[in-house]
Amino acid sequence: MLKILKYSLFDLIRSRWLIIYTLFFLIAGYVILYLGSDISKAIASLMNLILILTPLIGTLFGVINYYNSREFIELLLAQPIRRRAIFLGMYLGFSISLSLAFLFGIGIPFLSYGLWYSGEISNFLSLVVVGIFLTFIFSAFAFLIAVYNENRLKGFGISILFWLFMAFVYDGIFFISLILFEEYPVEKLAIVLSTLNPIDLSRTLVMLKLDISALMGYTGAVFRKFFGTSMGMILSYGALVTWSVVPVLWIINKSRNKDF
């Protein structure tokens, strides 16, 4: 598995798309930092960008990467290696290289701006951790969608719909359900619903860390009460880990009996 991870990483870090992705974060980071002149505000502004972009790129590049490797996977499958090692190695190689691109793109502007002396390190780290989690989660779903769909067009379509649903449609349903049931105690429903979507969960975690939960009004107070406790934190990070691990196990299980 490590050998496949190594070469897949070696291949992807030289891909043009990954370099463009890194440059994008690099430029966005510098622009936001120098326009706002405030690290704390820059973190809050970048949060929204990261919450939309890391899932999108994870999903799209993940599907493209799998379909591009489709024929090479056949060659690997004919080698004396286990299927599990091939898929795990390819998935990890992909999500690690995407995470590295994100980390460099976002890290360099902040470090050069003086992150070390700003007292915002832990806030910045929570942003980075969330971005990496989202990259891993959405790359895994992209691989899963591609493993299930031999038809590339269908795979692309489903993966874009999946991203759209998680990034936008889900919030709409969430919002409507809160309004519809406003006469009932909806705190628990709100907490459960936000745990069921990794993007919402990440947003809540970063906002609470940045201490801007007042922006979320009453729900913010409820979230503060739940996620602010160490138990709440453990549960929410646990949920992110579950979101990352389950699709990978699913990929391994699906690939075991798949015909290539």
């Binding site: 070469y7 897949s8 291949d11 992807l12 030289r14 891909s15 591009n68 490797s69 489709r70 024929e71 090479f72 056949e74 060659l75 004919a78 080698q79 004396p80």
Partner: peptide, 16 residues
């Protein structure tokens, strides 16, 4: 599969 050399029909490899 250690004892088999396989040539796939379509030759596509990691691009970079």
């Amino acid at each position: 599969r250690r004892k088999i050399g396989y040539l796939p029909q379509i030759a596509r490899f990691p691009e970079n």
